[in-house]
Write a protein that binds this DNA or RNA. Structure first.
Length: 104
DNA sequence: CAAGGGGCTGTCA
DNA sequence: TTGACAGCCCCTT
């Protein structure tokens, strides 16, 4: 395993700070990590997190309030289940960001 | 060192 | 509301 880059760590840190029951978009998380405009980097980092990670990777969705994973995939189902467990409500495979987006 | 591609976004038709 | 498009940045091959 390579030593984690500082960008990666910044993203992990920001991710860890998201409270339960709230969500952020990739772009927003990048911004929180001090990396404005690096939304796609966030995606790359999240995709590499270990399955047993304690980090709340599921609290990150795209700017449309939808999960950026193939609908029907195992990962999709898990992310959605975790969010619903936290009280987040889906309507037509999407959530209302006005209600659940985290505002630091 | 070049090329590919990714859990994206904002804008516009 | 939805889809296409062009930016965007950088890790992995």
């Amino acid at each position: 395993m390579q030593s984690p880059s500082d960008r990666q760590q910044a993203i992990w840190l920001a991710l860890a700070s998201i409270p339960r029951g709230r969500v952020v978009s990739y772009g927003q998380l990048a911004q929180l990590a001090g990396l404005p405009g690096r939304a796609r980097l966030v995606g790359q980092v999240l995709s590499k997190l270990p399955r047993d990670s304690k980090l709340p990777w599921h609290r990150v969705l795209n700017a449309q309030g939808r999960l950026s994973l193939p609908t029907g995939s195992v990962r999709y189902a898990e992310q959605r289940r975790r969010l619903e467990d936290e009280g987040i409500i889906f309507i037509d495979d999407r959530i209302n960001l006005k209600s659940f987006a985290w505002q630091p």
